[in-house]
């Protein structure tokens, strides 16, 4: 024993002798921290780049003497090549397909969420949830194939000649299925976040499971569900491939889901996929559309985030 103590002491004397508590400059630490900081704020630059580039090209478009805001927001024909700048020709299709998508995904997604959160046993949940996750993981171009070659023919067998081969109905329906898992999983999170005490309070008053779920849990989770809906709308507005494949090629100011029409995203995809020369009016007009898309989805996402944060505070 004694020997060991002596040994340790001598070791200390060799290497831990000096006690210098002054702040040391650790250069490599600083460099690493600098690099990490840069990585952290790179995303800010991405946003700035999006706003700057989209804005710059869009400004070139709006700076054309022929293009006025009155024409842009006030007319319904879109063909920049021949002086028609009515964005409504594209917005109408975006609104129509998104509305159909939400009409499908909101009730189905919410109902699925209620079932998963309130009714399903853990075992059943572990089977059902992955299926929704698969649905969420399917690339949108595959949904496009499905819309054009499966859903449209089926719709056609009911609606006959009224339905054009490319139509907003089929694209909207399939988009609804695509968004369903998103709505469902976000709503489920919101429902599960409702404290158990609230459910017990309802049960203790002789409420059935349905009454508890619909009249107590659902209203309590409403803001979280609202956030899910907003994100869903944002996804629907920004979705490209389904509409590019199945909704139609060519601007058409129409709210009739049976007709073919081109959404803002579908238009960007079609025009940019062709031969597009820089600095042409077509090129610049695409950036004007993209800027609108970006701003609309940005606002929707911000609202949704704000709602979710509020909702979290409520129960934490």
């Amino acid at each position: 024993m004694k020997e060991e103590v002596i040994h340790l002491k001598s070791l200390e004397a060799q290497s831990f002798r000096h006690f210098d508590l002054k702040k040391k400059l650790r250069i490599s630490e600083s460099i690493i921290q600098g690099l990490l900081f840069f990585a952290g704020i790179l995303s800010i630059f991405v946003t700035i780049a999006i706003v700057y580039e989209l804005g710059k090209e869009a400004m070139l478009f709006f700076a054309l003497p022929d293009v006025t805001f009155a024409k842009f927001f006030g007319t319904t024909k879109w063909q920049p090549g021949i002086g028609q700048y009515g964005i409504w020709a594209l917005v109408s299709a975006t609104l129509t397909t998104s509305t159909i998508a939400m009409l499908i995904s909101l009730p189905l997604g919410l109902a699925s969420a209620i079932y998963l959160s309130e009714y399903a046993s853990p075992r059943l949940r572990s089977i059902l949830k992955p299926i929704l996750e698969i649905l969420a993981g399917i690339p949108t171009v595959v949904y496009g194939y499905f819309a054009l070659l499966f859903v449209t023919p089926i719709l056609k067998s009911f609606l006959g000649e009224d339905l054009s081969v490319y139509n907003m109905l089929s694209a909207g329906l399939v988009m609804g299925i695509m968004i369903l898992p998103l709505i469902s999983s976000m709503s489920e999170d919101a429902l599960s976040a409702v404290p158990r005490a609230l459910r017990e309070g309802a049960y203790a008053m002789g409420a059935t499971k349905l009454e508890t779920s619909l009249q107590v849990v659902l209203p309590a989770a409403l803001s979280g569900i609202g956030a899910a809906v907003i994100i869903g709308i944002s996804r629907a507005v920004g979705e490209t491939m389904i509409v590019a494949v199945a909704a139609g090629a060519g601007p058409n100011f129409s709210f009739n889901p049976l007709e073919a029409a081109e959404t803002m995203t579908g238009h960007i995809a079609r025009i940019s996929g062709g031969d597009l020369s820089y600095n042409s009016i077509d090129y610049n007009s695409l950036f004007a559309i993209a800027l609108m898309l970006f701003l609309v989805t940005l606002v929707l996402n911000l609202i949704s985030q704000w709602v979710v944060n509020k909702f979290r505070e409520q129960y934490e």
């Binding site: 017990e200 203790a204 008053m205 309590a220």
Partner: peptide, 14 residues
């Protein structure tokens, strides 16, 4: 539960 009500540890109003 209609006949036998319950009040919980932490107040849990709806």
């Amino acid at each position: 539960r209609r006949k036998i009500g319950m009040v919980f540890q932490k107040p849990n109003p709806f």
